[in-house]
């Protein structure tokens, strides 16, 4: 199996590039989450700020989980299956929810 997989390995390294794209996106999500936490905990810390910070952290964790599962799927099969719409939607829900948190924090 492994020798067949090695033989079939894509010379364009598509799965590896996709894995790195997920890593980059996770990194961008981390930066956004850190900035969100800074906004939430800036100045006098209120209960609402702590709730918003916890929410942003859990959204970041959710994104991390989606990326982690996708990376494992990419690594497990010689011919990786296409991204499931459910996972794409989960990643987008985390992103949009972070923007909504941002609107609540800014206002």
């Amino acid at each position: 199996m492994s020798s067949a997989a090695a033989h079939e390995r894509d010379p364009g390294l598509q799965p590896e590039r996709t894995r790195l794209a997920w890593r980059r996106t996770t990194l961008a999500s981390t930066v956004a989450a850190v900035l969100a936490a800074k906004t939430a905990l800036h100045g006098d810390v209120s209960a609402a700020g702590i709730v918003a910070c916890a929410l942003c952290c859990s959204l970041w964790l959710g994104f991390l989980l989606v990326a982690h599962r996708r990376i494992r799927t990419l690594a497990s099969a010689a011919v990786p299956p296409a991204l499931a719409p459910r996972h794409a939607t989960a990643a987008i829900v985390c992103t949009v929810a972070m923007a909504v948190c941002g609107v609540a924090l800014v206002l």
Partner: peptide, 19 residues
């Protein structure tokens, strides 16, 4: 999928810029 992820990064950069 990579194109999708590039757009998600753009979105995250805009959100981070907002913060």
């Amino acid at each position: 999928e990579r194109t999708f992820l590039a757009w998600v990064r753009t979105a995250l950069a805009l959100i981070g810029g907002g913060f």
